[in-house]
Write a protein that binds this DNA or RNA. Structure first.
Lengths: 144, 144
DNA sequence: ACAATAAAAGATATAAAGGTCTTAATATAT
DNA sequence: ATATATTAAGACCTTTATATCTTTTATTGT
């Protein structure tokens, strides 16, 4: 569904959100350990998230990453996916045709549209705050 | 959503279905030209489809590929996807966790499940015959 | 039997995704 | 100011997906 980078990005963002909610700033090592991801690769992804203003990055001693509490409910999964994977999942044709459109649909166009719209809607309405609460309350899990 | 190989596989199967409906057997060259795919790569994919008994392959002069008319309504998109991409799209966790399950769900488990089930259902109920009819009737398109 | 045609199989090449390593930049505390 | 902690940036490596090329096998018509 998503690239590995995007999976790590979502995991990381949720974990940072949980910690930020408790006023904890977290560093790369901590994050990659908690979400079970390769450290150096995760660093790259956090850079991307930071550039896209999904998370804040603070250098130096006691530095790390966090998310503004007020922003947390505004950050949706769609923002993370867009920042890492781009809009391919939204606009891409199910059969890979560049010219596929409502006017000139590929054979699966309409069927895919339904599913894609559901996915799109889910991503656009699911907030990082919401996901972080489930994790905090022990209802969901982020590692093995 | 799917691999390139799977996209080509679906395109090819639909095209072969259209032709088989008119009792035409089609060769690799014709197929890859019609569906706008790399010829040699398409050959590999057709081999896979043939091994998985989704299409028939006939060697020699006047050889090529076809699909039994009676089978056409029984072949669903899910069969093609399974043959080429495997079951990752069904069972895979949205965040890439191996251990993700209903009992130990990742933060997006339930939300993804809804979308995935819709996709699964669509793939399992959409037949190659159905798709080939839209194409034959000029309602849908397979190339640029 | 032989030549021609077409797919199968296997080896190889190229591109993209996934991942690491090294050096630079920035902030903090002493 | 200096040493230390931490992320940023860029170069690099590895693996997988995508794609091609060559040789073999099967089928048909003559």
């Amino acid at each position: 569904m998503f690239s590995k980078a995007c999976e790590y990005a979502i995991r990381a963002t949720i974990y940072i959100a949980v910690q930020s909610n408790q006023d904890n700033r977290v560093g790369l090592k901590d994050i990659s350990k908690e979400i079970d991801s390769p450290e150096a690769f995760t660093a790259k992804i956090l850079q991307q998230l930071s550039k896209n203003e999904i998370i804040n990055s603070i250098k130096g001693p006691n530095g790390g990453f966090d998310i503004d509490k007020k922003e947390m409910s505004k950050i949706k999964l769609s923002h993370i996916v867009m920042a890492i994977d781009g809009d391919a999942i939204y606009k891409g044709c199910g059969l890979g045709f560049k010219q596929c459109s409502d006017k000139q649909p590929c054979p699966v166009h309409d069927k895919f549209k339904v599913v894609r719209n559901e996915l799109k809607n889910m991503l656009e309405t699911t907030s990082v705050l919401e996901l972080s609460l489930g994790l905090k309350n022990g209802l969901t899990f982020l590692h093995r």
